[in-house]
């Protein structure tokens, strides 16, 4: 649809112009398909994800921005609201609370906020949710930290 293409192109130009605006987010559009994007986001500080770089895949529907983009983690992450195998994200704004005023950039910011503030009561990853719900903060943090180190930290050397 023409409207979605125009809007994505607008976002693309915005991203190019303000590359430095948000150092925690890097959005990259597929070379040949404006409906496919990837993003690299930095794990928020003072969380077990700090120091990690997480890759997100965006698949954008033709009715965008009436419909939300489909986003999932490509990088493994241990988080109550992210499916451990598929990377699916459980976040209201990507579902029924979507508004066309969100952009790919602001969706990335919402995901970073979700990383810092997990919601154990709507878990996609029950192991992670149960650790938090039972109050085992230490257990959750060490698991999340381990996977950040394994999957999201660039190998040194």
């Amino acid at each position: 649809m023409q409207a979605s293409r125009a809007r994505l192109f607008k976002e693309y130009k915005e991203v190019q112009r303000e590359k430095a605006a948000d150092p925690d987010i890097q959005l990259i559009c597929d070379d040949s398909n404006i409906f496919k994007w990837t993003a690299l986001i930095k794990g928020p500080s003072e969380t077990p994800y700090e120091g990690g770089v997480f890759q997100l895949a965006f698949a954008i529907p033709e009715q965008y921005p009436l419909l939300p983009p489909q986003v999932r983690f490509l990088t493994k992450i241990f988080h109550p609201n992210v499916h451990f195998k598929t990377g699916e994200i459980c976040l209201d704004i990507l579902k029924n609370a979507w508004s066309p005023a969100w952009t790919l950039q602001s969706v990335c910011r919402a995901i970073i906020a979700l990383m810092a503030h997990p919601e154990p009561d709507s878990p996609l990853n029950c192991d992670s949710g149960n650790l938090l719900r039972s109050g085992d903060l230490r257990g959750y943090r060490s698991m999340a930290r381990m996977y950040t180190k394994l999957a999201a930290m660039p190998k040194k050397g």
Binding site: L91, N96, A97, W102, S106, A110, E119, D121, S122, L124
Partner: peptide, 24 residues
Amino acid sequence: MDGGQSDANTSSATSIPTASSSYE
């Protein structure tokens, strides 16, 4: 062990899309 979620029970983000400089 995974799963058990429903759409009605999603984690929520801030209610207002946070606008960046140029979006304002």
